[in-house]
Amino acid sequence: MIRFDEVSKRYAGGHQALKQVSFELDQGAMAFLTGRSGAGKSTLLKLIMLTERPDQGQIVVGPRNILRLSTKQIPLYRRRIGVVFQDHQLLYDRSVFDNVMLPLRIDAYDKHEAARRVRAALDKVGLLSKEKMNPITLSGGEQQRVGIARAVVNRPQILLADEPTGNLDPELAAEIMLLFEQFNQVGVSMLIASHDLSLITRLRHRILTLDQGSLINDEVYPSRRDSQPHGSGR
């Protein structure tokens, strides 16, 4: 589903964000991407979203080498990927309902079908009763769930999440992860960047570890380990 071949990325300032990273994520798989701040997690996700381009290597998503997509094809490609951001990226000038509606408006869904899907997505994250509220009035965990509803409302094949639990307390973080597992169980491929090792090691999924831009560890179903070396270092 997602394949990286020797991907390197150096930013304009000279910072080497990724060094020859290679991995493959199968369709329907779920994996965590971990490492310290600045290890390259966000860059890797940005490369998949095509908001950044690598200097070297190939990235294949689904059947295609996405680096060969034309400017016009990029928006259509992005609609097949759901993204959850650490800071939610919700729009506070409109209701929860309209926030979740946004991807469907972009994809030209008609209102009835779109409203049905928005309610289904909000129901899934447990916020159906708050659809008319402004997201700014919701708690951090609730806002993140609105962000997740927006990411899945278009039924993407892939869901990316960049530190989705970064601002949440452990209990809420676990809830969010449970939600992701449920999406994964219905066939959505997931790649979640998180530095919260204690949380993700408990969940027993594949863990890709980045250190200074290099992929230093790729563990499937790791056993419980101490969270000391890369611990929640913020």
Binding site: T51, P75, Y77, R79, V83, L91, L102, I106, D107
Partner: peptide, 8 residues
């Protein structure tokens, strides 16, 4: 946000 979620 709209650009990130695939708006043309």
């Amino acid at each position: 946000v709209m650009t990130l979620i695939g708006a043309t």
